[in-house]
């Protein structure tokens, strides 16, 4: 536990020091929000949630790539891959909460007649899904540019694809559209249930995949045996 916390604290410090990146990430959801603020209030909520997801998964992507160099050394100095990946996730989740709270407050102040609780739920799920999603991309794609392009594609598709289309359920942020409909258009609870199920499933599966990818990459190789000193 201590080891996970040490990794989490260090990862948080690293994230916070990338000031310019942080500022861009913080402003990105705002741009999304304002883009539809004038004509379609409800749409601006959907967009700001996607913006939070995009910002956090981008941050996770960069954090994951930056850690590649030092992780083998940390593994050798006594960390398990689980310590490393959970520590980093904790740090990203913390940043994600910090990122979404101001936007939730903005919606509270700026919007009327929506289900605030459901919006809070979207944001919580967004943070839970976006962090492992970005880390997973960094584990699979060695270069940041490729990961960024994939993220761009996913978020773009998420915006343009009809949520009713079955194929769009394969996108990681689909739940935000579904629960969004429930929160904004006051539809029946089916939307909430479907969204919640998909969101939780993605959060769990992505987290497990990140843990597995890290365990494979930082595995103890079979040719090397440590004998007690």
């Amino acid at each position: 536990m201590t080891r996970t916390l040490v990794v989490a604290e260090t990862a948080l410090r690293e994230l916070v020091r990338r000031r310019s990146v942080l500022v861009i990430l913080l402003l990105l959801p705002l741009a999304f929000y304002l883009s539809r603020r004038g004509d379609h209030l409800g749409q601006s909520i959907r967009f700001v949630c996607l913006g939070v997801g995009w910002a956090l998964s981008t941050a996770a992507l960069f954090a994951g790539s930056a850690a590649r160099g030092i992780e083998p050394r940390l593994r050798l100095s006594g960390y398990r891959s689980l310590h490393l990946v959970l520590g980093r996730l904790l740090a990203l989740w913390t940043v994600g909460v910090g990122l979404s709270v101001p936007y939730f407050v903005l919606i509270l102040v700026d919007q009327r007649d929506v289900r605030y609780g459901a919006i809070a739920l979207i944001m919580a799920l967004m943070v839970a899904v976006a962090a492992p999603f970005g880390l997973l991309l960094s584990a699979v794609l060695p270069r940041e540019l490729e990961g960024t392009l994939v993220l761009l594609t996913v978020v773009g598709l998420q915006m343009v694809m009809d949520p009713a289309d079955t194929a769009s359920r394969a996108l990681p942020f689909w739940f935000s559209r579904e629960i969004g409909t429930y929160a904004i258009d006051h539809t029946d609870g089916g939307y909430l249930t479907r969204g919640l199920t998909q969101g939780i499933a993605f959060a769990v599966v992505l987290t497990l995949l990140v843990v597995a990818a890290s365990a494979v990459r930082l595995r103890q190789r079979r040719h090397l045996r440590f004998v007690g000193a």
């Binding site: 160099g69 030092i70 050798l76 000193a229």
Partner: peptide, 26 residues
């Protein structure tokens, strides 16, 4: 991983890479 062969280490291992191995922002 090697294609063949084994390594046995008694005790803990410290490794200093040629470069990298440090975190830019710390």
């Amino acid at each position: 991983s090697p294609d063949a062969g084994t390594v046995r280490v008694h005790g803990a291992l410290g490794y200093c890479p040629q470069d990298g191995g440090t975190a830019e922002f710390l």
